Simulated scan of single mutants.
Amino acid sequence: MRPEFSDTLSILRDWDASLVRLRELADAPPGEGTALERLRPLPPVHPSGQVLCGGANYFTHLRQIYVSMQRGRGDTRAEEELRTEAEEFAKRRAHGDPFIFAGLPGALSGANDDVVLWGPGKEHDWEVELAVVLSHGGRDIPVESAMDHVAGYTISNDISTRDVMYPPNLGMTDFVMTKLRPTFFPTGPWIVPREFVRDYRSLHITLKVNGEVMQDEGVDDIIHGVEALVSYASRVVALQAGDTLLTGSPAGNAGHHGNRWLVPGDVMEAEITGLGVQRNRCVAP
């Protein structure tokens, strides 16, 4: 019996059978179904699924962050000395565990939806990332079999308000205020099954703001790959079918572009090779 789909989660929970049916639909004669341009794509993940986010996971981005943080602390050493120190810092990260934090499905929005630049805070930033959607959950998943749990890939943009990240007199990071407001996770437009992505490290990530390229990096710059991220996350969290795992942002955030923060009226266009395009307009609350 061929599966019929009521929602994304039903597809993911019976992924092997779903792939057979999805191939049939992909091979349907032209003209059947609804033209894509007539649809508003919603996030292609289940709204009750867990959202996990990898952080500080690209070499070039991590080096940029390190230099920026040192300058922010008043470090006046020569640029070459700081860059050498940043390189060593990035190499040490590669030998440690990944850094993963939790997102919220309530922050998800569609690939063409508006992004609302909520206050408090004005330093709204972008972080386009390769996202992984799981077809099988589990605990303590070995690295060697981690890819068997991956249904496919999509695009997610982890919008972050930088000037509320570190509350005064607290000494801790507030990711809820910074990243998890409604519309702050544009995701989609669709999931590309893993079998159609021969090597995720060969993909390329691009983000434009009002037509100007801000992020332009290959996934091959990633520190901890999908296999390591899925395995590590499963040591901490009981993963489930339908969960989404963001793999980290490459270089090129607003701070690298002279603190060019997002403002109402900006249009972000995010693209990852073969995974589609997002186009999100920034609006005031």
Rank of each mutant, 00 (worst) to 15 (best):
L245A: 02
T60L: 11
D266T: 09
G248C: 10
R13M: 13
S18A: 14
T154Y: 01
G54K: 00
A107L: 05
A26N: 13
P30A: 13
R83W: 15
R23T: 15
R63N: 10
G106K: 11
G96P: 06
K208S: 07
G276P: 09
T187E: 08
G188Q: 10
K179P: 12
V150S: 03
F89Q: 07
L104E: 14
V226W: 04
Y153A: 02
W126T: 07
G248D: 13
Q70T: 07
M1K: 11
D174T: 03
E217R: 07
F196R: 10
R21E: 15
G258C: 02
W126C: 00
T173N: 00
E271D: 06
N280V: 10
L19T: 09
V230C: 03
G137Y: 05
G274Q: 09
I11P: 02
E217P: 00
L203N: 04
V128G: 08
M172E: 14
E127H: 03
V128A: 07
V115D: 08
P44N: 06
H61N: 08
E81Y: 01
T34H: 07
N253Q: 12
V132N: 10
G110Q: 07
W118M: 07
L170Y: 11
L52Q: 10
T154C: 12
V209R: 11
A238C: 09
E80H: 04
V116T: 11
N280P: 10
R21S: 13
L39T: 12
A86F: 00
T244S: 06
R71E: 13
I65G: 02
E80A: 15
T8L: 02
G138S: 09
P186G: 06
A86R: 05
A228K: 15
R77C: 03
L207D: 01
R77I: 06
L9P: 04
G255A: 09
A78L: 10
P43V: 08
E81S: 11
E80Y: 02
G152I: 14
F196G: 02
R71F: 01
L42D: 11
G248W: 05
I141F: 02
D221W: 04
E24C: 07
M165Q: 15
G31D: 10
A35Q: 13
S145I: 13
A94T: 06
W126M: 04
L262Q: 09
H46K: 00
R260S: 13
P105F: 04
P264E: 11
V263A: 10
S156G: 14
H149N: 09
A151G: 01
S68K: 11
H257Y: 07
A251C: 12
Y232H: 15
A86P: 00
P285G: 05
L39E: 11
S68W: 15
V230T: 06
D148L: 08
M172R: 14
L203E: 06
M177C: 10
P30S: 13
R139Y: 03
W15H: 06
F5D: 10
D113I: 07
R83H: 12
R281C: 01
T273Y: 03
T173G: 00
T244N: 03
L62W: 03
P105K: 03
S202K: 05
P41A: 08
S48P: 04
P264S: 02
S135M: 04
E88N: 11
F184M: 12
T178W: 00
Q64A: 15
D16V: 07
